[in-house]
């Protein structure tokens, strides 16, 4: 028999921020909160100058993107992460999918914080390059 639960919010009973979910195989559980991506963003890395704010095409739990320099961006998180140990990954594409960019999610020059991290995009010659689409995803613990 099918069942549907209609609700606005899920909170753990033993620990508010931890809900187990039976996994696809039916034998083990995974964790709902740990499995959720806490932030993601899709933005155009071209057309702005250093220091300018970039408007995301779409995003979740990010407040702003700053163009630091060519192929160099900082992303600000809306609801803070619990610590600076979170994982972020990304990718990028260019006009007509040209090979002018690939995200490098390192923190060179700026240590990541619970609210901000910095990413770099390089072209196939390993030179900084502004791609037409930059995508970033963040996983980890929310504050």
């Amino acid at each position: 028999m099918s069942s549907e639960l209609v609700l606005d919010e899920l909170t753990g009973r033993s620990s508010a921020g931890s809900i187990a979910v039976t996994a696809e195989g039916g034998t083990v559980t995974t964790n709902l909160q740990q499995g959720l991506t806490k932030a993601w963003v899709n933005f155009n890395g071209t057309g702005t100058s250093a220091g300018a704010t970039i408007t995301a095409r779409d995003s979740f739990n990010t407040t702003s993107i700053t163009d630091v320099n060519t192929g160099d961006y900082t992303i600000t998180i809306a609801n803070n992460m619990a610590n600076d140990d979170y994982a972020h990954a990304g990718d990028s594409g260019g006009t007509n999918n040209s090979s002018n960019g690939n995200v490098y999610c390192n923190d060179q020059g700026t240590a990541r914080t619970t609210t901000l991290f910095r990413v770099y995009t390089l072209n196939s010659s390993a030179s900084p390059s502004d791609p037409a689409q930059v995508n970033i995803m963040v996983c980890g613990d929310l504050a």
Binding site: L7, E9, Q34, G35, L36
Partner: peptide, 27 residues
């Protein structure tokens, strides 16, 4: 099936630190 009450496609989930919520569908 899980469905939001106020908005069918939006359910809040309490985060790990117990102080903020994230969004199930967006995550």
């Amino acid at each position: 099936t899980l469905t939001g009450v106020s908005t069918a496609g939006s359910i809040s989930v309490t985060g790990e630190g117990n102080s903020t919520t994230t969004n199930l569908q967006n995550g």
